[in-house]
């Protein structure tokens, strides 16, 4: 059962133990079944690495997050303009507002606007709420509020305390869950490498007859 550390990527077991394991695999049949000692094929290893990378990339809170109220500030500013007021239908109004606000926005804001189109009726409903927060009556800045259909609500996050004395309510791109996962996955990989490398090297195949 001794660990052998001179060639850790070859095997962590000494020669005697490797031979013992191979002999057992050759001798022992589990109800007529036996097991091979083949390596994890390289494409599968690559796929496993890709899965781990993808797991962290695709689950970032930025994907699928709710729209924050601040992305519609320009919509609210434009809705009372003479151009918009002169238009006949809600569709025309929203089309104009969305295009104009989109052209003014930076790349990040543009992405948010693309993901969260707004209907004229909802804009009519949320506009007074946005104006109220803008007027200083809201305790938090606009980007701490989520738009939920036709209403605005303080986002369900508790971040760091800010200089203003309130707790930030913005969705983070990284959080405690990811930190736990980094350690969790690391421990798993380390343990699996130890478990698998304790077996005889994959180049040593049992003769299974």
């Amino acid at each position: 059962m001794a660990f052998k550390m001179d060639q850790p990527l070859y095997s962590l077991s000494d020669e005697a133990e490797q031979k013992e394991i191979l002999a057992l695999w050759e001798k022992e049949k589990h109800g007529g079944l036996s097991e091979g000692n083949n390596r994890i094929p390289f494409p599968i290893t690559f796929l496993l690495g890709l899965i781990i990378l993808t797991a962290f990339m695709i689950t970032m809170p930025i994907w699928g997050q709710r729209p924050t109220a601040d992305i519609y500030v320009d919509y609210v500013a434009l809705m009372d303009s003479a151009e918009v007021q002169s238009m006949a239908t809600p569709e025309e109004k929203m089309n104009y507002i969305a295009k104009t606000a989109y052209a003014k926005a930076d790349a990040r804001r543009q992405g948010a606007l693309e993901r969260h189109p707004l209907a004229w009726d909802d804009l009519l409903n949320i506009a007074p709420q946005i104006k109220e927060i803008q007027s200083g009556k809201g305790k938090y800045p606009l980007d701490n509020y989520n738009v939920l259909g036709d209403r605005i609500a303080l986002a369900n996050f508790e971040g760091n305390f800010t200089e203003g004395g309130y707790r930030e309510r913005k969705q983070p791109w990284w959080d405690l869950g990811y930190t736990i996962d980094v350690f969790y996955v690391s421990y798993f990989l380390i343990t699996m490498v130890i478990v698998i490398k304790r077996l005889p090297h994959f180049s040593r195949k049992p003769n299974l007859g």
Partner: peptide, 16 residues
Amino acid sequence: EWLKSFASVEGVLILI
């Protein structure tokens, strides 16, 4: 949200 993040990463890792 951090609990969801934790579970969500593990959810993808079920592919392993």
